[in-house]
Design a protein around this nucleic acid. Sequence first.
DNA 1: ATTAGTTATTGACCGAGGTCAATTTCTGTA
DNA 2: TACAGAAATTGACCTCGGTCAATAACTAAT
Lengths: 200, 200
Amino acid sequence: MTKPVQQRTLKTRAKLIAAAEVLIAKEGYTALRVEDVVQKAGVAKGTFFAHFRDKDALMDRLIGAHIDRILDDWEKAPAPKTIPEVVAIMSPLLTFLTSERYVFDVVMRYSGATLIEDIGPIAMTIGRFDELMCGWMEVGEYRADVSPQLLSEGVQAFFFQAMALHFCALHSDIALTDRLQSYLSAWLIVKTESPSASCT
Amino acid sequence: MTKPVQQRTLKTRAKLIAAAEVLIAKEGYTALRVEDVVQKAGVAKGTFFAHFRDKDALMDRLIGAHIDRILDDWEKAPAPKTIPEVVAIMSPLLTFLTSERYVFDVVMRYSGATLIEDIGPIAMTIGRFDELMCGWMEVGEYRADVSPQLLSEGVQAFFFQAMALHFCALHSDIALTDRLQSYLSAWLIVKTESPSASCT
DNA sequence: ATTAGTTATTGACCGAGGTCAATTTCTGTA
DNA sequence: TACAGAAATTGACCTCGGTCAATAACTAAT
């Protein structure tokens, strides 16, 4: 109860993470192999799995940490007021999530936690994303007929849709940010404009 | 050129698919192992990979076929005119895609083809989905300020978002169809209604 | 019918993620 | 300091998807 975790535990975990980060910096997430990580960290294979449930748990942590760093910038910057500004601020995250198909897949799979107990790093970042978005929705001049919460969920949906189509051969010709912008323009209908030809 | 494919090829492939279908009916997609398929089909392991690039290629085909059967019903039925009707007709597909997390993941991964050459069965069904949706968008009384194509892409985005949150511990309390309905109500703003409190 | 060339099948083998009983290291207590 | 119990580490072993050189089966041409 007093000291359930030993010093060497932290040290070993740090070694594993450091080794993984070096390897990823060199070869990317897709190419990472557990064998290489433990070899570089100088520990046995079993040790890895004493620290991480599986390979994906490490990925969850590393990718989550990367996303967190990007979201830190979102928080530091002034809230975007227009749709182009929203897209612009989102751009670094789009770039990271589409840098490797594998990264996108991991984020998709871990963006929602299955059990409440194990809300992992990536799932946490989705929470941050959502919170930030809700804030932006309130300060910008967007439609007011639906709640900021729903607006935020929609932005998330289009955010992922834009990336999914980016990976698709039939649609990858259109720039990711352009597509997202046209989605958001349609979703977050700007307040001051009156609907063009709908009220007959 | 005349007969590039032999009879036994078709027979072997049919045996493999039949074996897989039996196993899946019994244990589900998640539990399917290639070893079991080849054993039940009475062929060697290598044969499997002479017929399918990898395990996922078989899954693509089987899951794609299942989705196709569901979409056949969509096509047979009269086009839904209201949002509740749209959700109702979509319900069987939602049920199938959320029956196993693994199925959802496979569909996500294969819904967009990486190369134009290998548009697989699942990617084809997304095309059908899109086409059907475009048709429905035109006959229903939905917003006219954006193209049916964009409307359809949005429906797709919300369709997947609803399922993703369904798998998420934080959000799985709300029924899948209810969530989708509230998404679509906000996205496909019905024409006849005038926007409530937006034009100040 | 024989044969040459093509296509399909085989199964031993590999790679990489993941497990676990045995062992070592650590910590608090007498 | 000695020792008992807990925690961390080890590496042989397992599973399962996937490969490939060798072999068998098929086809068409002479």
